[in-house]
């Protein structure tokens, strides 16, 4: 596997050590020749800003607005006037037991998915560096396959694998006609397995690329000192990979917190008596099945705020490490 990027080799081996490459050490390279383009950068940015403004910022604004209104089917059809309700939608939401449960389930489920994905991804990335070309290629290709699988096909295929009547998994584990989607936790576990399956490749490949950029001498020195595998990972690799780990963690949090298709398809829209609802699906059901658009929007806003908090935490972390954006 040869590298074919445009990056000059000198830059490629160093950057994983983000903490060391503080911007202050190379001020002339970073700041000096970069042209002050006047209006040019804005010209380049114009299409992106236009698209984002119209299709992201404006809808987010509308989402916020709807969450303060009384907005149900009657209003949408124009039968009744929209009414400003202030925070009433939010108080309704937080007074609802089910919302609390769904919120808790979402956070717990996302956390489990992130941990599972990171653990599997990192472990396999390290494993990749320990094996010769053939097993490595096999694992890489399998991972790419899992990554490439569209979410919806992944969900249906996993359902089929765990089908109580026709699936091979129950047969293999001798579980008879145990129904995975019936119990709350077994259903979550099934979805979790699918989520980890389709999202660990991103972590694995990214971390693997990062480890390869770590100078061999460092690792050799550590190994000669008699450090164990786990110690090498903890004391040498992990600190060097911290920027990469930061990014894959944040991406995983973003993706896993927003899981929709898997839950929707695998648990049939939220499971028995709504036991497997997560915020995203809950918002969708509230809005589109029950036509309570304002409640659905309020749930969306809560999700947005939670993710925003994660992002801000991440940015703070970056800043403390002296990273430049």
């Amino acid at each position: 596997m040869r590298r074919t990027t445009v990056a000059p080799p000198a830059k490629r081996s160093a950057p994983a050590t983000g903490a060391r490459r503080a911007p202050a050490t190379t001020p002339s390279r970073r700041r000096g020749p970069r042209p002050r383009g006047g209006w040019t950068p804005w010209l380049y940015l114009a299409p992106a800003l236009a698209v984002l403004g119209a299709l992201l910022v404006y809808p987010v604004y509308q989402l916020g607005l709807i969450s303060f209104l009384e907005y149900t089917q009657a209003q949408v059809s124009g039968g009744e006037p929209t009414r400003f309700r202030g925070l009433a939608n939010y108080t309704d939401l937080f007074a609802d037991d089910q919302f609390g449960q769904v919120l808790l389930a979402t956070v717990g489920f996302a956390a489990a998915c992130v941990l599972g994905t990171l653990a599997v991804g990192c472990a396999l990335a390290v494993l990749l560096t320990r094996v010769r070309a053939l097993p490595r290629l096999a694992l890489l290709l399998a991972a790419l396959g899992a990554w490439a699988t569209p979410t919806i096909t992944g969900s249906t295929v996993w359902l089929f694998l765990f089908d109580p009547d026709f699936g091979p998994v129950n047969r293999l584990l001798g579980l008879g006609d145990f129904s995975w989607t019936y119990g709350r936790y077994s259903a979550f576990l099934l979805v979790l397995l699918e989520v980890v399956w389709c999202s660990f490749p991103f972590v694995m490949i990214t971390v693997y690329a990062g480890i390869r950029a770590v100078p061999g001498e460092v690792l050799e020195a550590a190994a000669l000192d008699g450090a164990s595998q786990w110690r090498i990972w903890r004391s040498v690799l992990a600190p060097m990979l911290r920027p990469i780990l930061g990014i894959v963690t944040v991406q995983s949090v973003i993706w896993d917190f927003k899981v929709f298709t898997q839950i929707y398809v695998m648990t049939g829209g939220g499971g028995i008596a709504g036991q497997n609802l997560v915020l995203n699906v809950y918002a969708y059901q509230k809005a589109f099945a029950s036509s309570q658009y304002s409640l659905g929007s309020a749930i969306g806003v809560v999700m947005l705020l939670l993710l925003l908090a994660v992002t801000l935490g991440y940015l703070r972390l970056l800043r403390r490490q002296g990273e430049e954006l």
Binding site: G53, V57, V60, Y61, L65, Y71, T82
Partner: peptide, 17 residues
């Protein structure tokens, strides 16, 4: 910036006339 980009107008109703 976000505030500027968002023009203040309420979601419309469709009038299923």
């Amino acid at each position: 910036l976000a505030a500027v980009l968002a023009t203040a107008c309420a979601p419309q109703t469709s009038g299923t006339s």
